[in-house]
């Protein structure tokens, strides 16, 4: 019993320490944005790696999530003769939930893990110490450009995922199953408003920040050579994904208070 209590206590303390480290890194990023040196070349490189490089995977994911969701909704709604409302359902779900979450999970896997691996490798090969020895703060050089690039890229990637999800759903339901295009389009446009889109963008912005902070933190704390870098990479991806899903729930509650359904109708 004492052993279990001790283990639980240690686990709790470790989690608290972890949150403290994330808070410290966030504070360092804040200081870096206010006082650090501006490095446009690094920002450009990260925009290409994070935003431009993630487009294909995000578009394909968004498109097929929209398509399969459209098909399932159509199959269910058909029984109630509501198949023309499929577009409305797909559109709102893609904007508010599926687009941001699925995009964030894919970006966590593709970009977050790469950040942890790259920074972790630099850590275990003393390249970060070399930066520090040259008088360069690692957060200024490695984390801030990545965060800025992600803050710009994530909303745009989510917009792409949403657009292609709705588009492929349209192709499946209208072209594949013959739902009249006018009904489908009118229901979609009538049910989707700027508030739905705003929710997706805000979530994307928050998820992007979460992914960068968690992944860069894992990289900066990597140790024990190649094994440690591998572990950091896996943990960055898994932790980012879990945080995205948990934060998404609370963000949904909060944003639905700010932008309730039908508020702009």
């Amino acid at each position: 019993m004492v052993g279990i209590t001790r283990k639980l206590g240690r686990w709790g303390l470790d989690r608290l320490a972890y949150l403290g480290q994330l808070g410290e890194l966030t504070q360092q990023i804040g200081v870096s944005m206010l006082r650090g040196r501006w490095r446009p070349r690094l920002l450009g490189e990260q925009l290409v790696a994070t935003g431009f490089g993630s487009q294909l995977v995000v578009i394909v994911t968004g498109a097929f999530v929209g398509a399969v969701f459209g098909f399932q909704v159509y199959a269910k709604f058909k029984g109630y003769a509501l198949e023309s409302a499929t577009g409305a359902m797909v559109s709102v779900a893609m904007c508010r939930e599926l687009g941001p979450v699925v995009t964030a999970l894919m970006v966590a896997g593709r970009v977050g893990s790469a950040m942890a691996a790259e920074i972790g490798t630099m850590k275990v090969t003393e390249q970060i110490d070399a930066l520090r020895a040259l008088g360069i703060h690692p957060v200024d050089y490695l984390v801030t450009p990545r965060l800025l690039a992600m803050m710009v890229s994530m909303p745009l990637l989510i917009a792409e995922a949403i657009a292609f999800g709705i588009l492929l759903s349209y192709v499946v339901v209208v072209e594949g199953f013959g739902v009249p295009v006018a009904y489908y389009r009118n229901h979609t446009l009538a049910s989707t408003n700027m508030e739905d889109v705003s929710i997706g963008m805000i979530k994307g912005f928050v998820f992007g920040i979460l992914i960068v902070i968690i992944s860069c933190h894992r990289g900066l704390h990597a140790e024990n050579g190649a094994v440690g870098v591998g572990r950091s990479t896996t943990e960055a991806m898994v932790t980012s994904a879990l945080w995205v899903l948990i934060v998404n729930f609370f963000l949904s509650l909060l944003l639905n208070l700010i932008f309730p359904y039908g508020s702009a109708a």
């Binding site: 630099m122 003393e126 390249q127 110490d129 070399a130």
Partner: peptide, 10 residues
């Protein structure tokens, strides 16, 4: 500072 393994940026 010269590091043991060089610590060149790869």
């Amino acid at each position: 500072l010269l590091f043991q393994n060089g610590a060149l940026f790869d």
